[in-house]
Design a protein around this nucleic acid. Sequence first.
DNA 1: AGAAAAGAATAAGGTAGTTTAAGATTTGCG
DNA 2: CGCAAATCTTAAACTACCTTATTCTTTTCT
Lengths: 196, 196
Amino acid sequence: MPHTSLIAALAQHVTLSQEEEAAFLAICEIREAKKKEFLLHTGQPTRALYFVQKGCLRSFIVDKAGKEVNLEFAVEHYWISDIGFGKPALLSIQALEPTQYVQINIAAFEQLTQGYPVFNLFFRKLLQNGYFAFKKRTLSGMTQTAAENYRDFLLKFPDLSQRIPQYHIASYLGITPEFFSSIKSEGLDLYQQAIS
Amino acid sequence: MPHTSLIAALAQHVTLSQEEEAAFLAICEIREAKKKEFLLHTGQPTRALYFVQKGCLRSFIVDKAGKEVNLEFAVEHYWISDIGFGKPALLSIQALEPTQYVQINIAAFEQLTQGYPVFNLFFRKLLQNGYFAFKKRTLSGMTQTAAENYRDFLLKFPDLSQRIPQYHIASYLGITPEFFSSIKSEGLDLYQQAIS
DNA sequence: AGAAAAGAATAAGGTAGTTTAAGATTTGCG
DNA sequence: CGCAAATCTTAAACTACCTTATTCTTTTCT
């Protein structure tokens, strides 16, 4: 059952009939990305959304100074995408590990909503969730110190710090790898507090 | 025609029949808020979204230190809301000027989508737009200097700096009123560049 | 396995933005 | 109008985080 986790993810938001489920699966493509492979480059029209079955993807932008800034990580059972469908993508999306994912073409999805309106609701909820999570993280980023944000990261992605380079985490936290290294060596107590 | 601007805002996203338009207007309530009046308090269940016809609303949170952090301003023809419908609101929403707005109850809206599925699409687009705009601003905030963010603010809300206290703008930019005051006195040239 | 490349730690010096505090100016309101 | 409260400015001391540079460690590639 290659789609088990995907079906479970759908069920979180909507209840589907057998027929709807099948129609949805028909537009899903299972794909593999090698480590460092790009699924989307900034500036390309956004054509798909992605659901990670195994591995890890990141979304990021390049700032004026040419530095990459990580926005989101998507590990097992996470959705990820740029958002301005049709418009040129703000973000790039890249695999940080060999990754197995489901690709859902937006045009095909729009088609699908014609015949099965329930997917409008599904997509709406997905967007709401993503927007909510992003807003929450942004707010934390604005009002907390870097060490506190790191603690939040560890709670949200318990094993990810063992799987990807630290400079990607630093970038996600909005700090330099050097400063990240220094808060780690000082502030491990914060994490101890968090998990205890 | 008290709803002219609202209808125009709908038309940006979807094409509606007379009947659909009427059905939508039936669930809209026109309201007035006095200056400083709250439309939503953090922690309350989110029940509505708002469309500003005249005036200005802000959304904000209170951080751990007790300080208010402004997230979004909504002036004429802007939508604003918390996003985690049903869940306790992350944000508070408050009027910064005497404001005339349209309130759309979420439960009533959900009802409406039963009979008129086009509103699922509408809402989805509204969310996409909001998410996109928020993401864009957040990214700018992360990669730009405060003076550059201020310039972007002036371009997006040309007259708002004359209408509301400056400390609200400072809060929106994520800086203190004192530092805001200092970048203003130095960096007006940036704005001159921007509008020329 | 061994060379090359990528990543991590540490340290010194620098800057954007904060804090605190005081004074100046504007606004709201009886 | 006139006073009180709210808002804005300036400035000095301070802090979180950055930059650059060097060394050490780990991973990747052939």
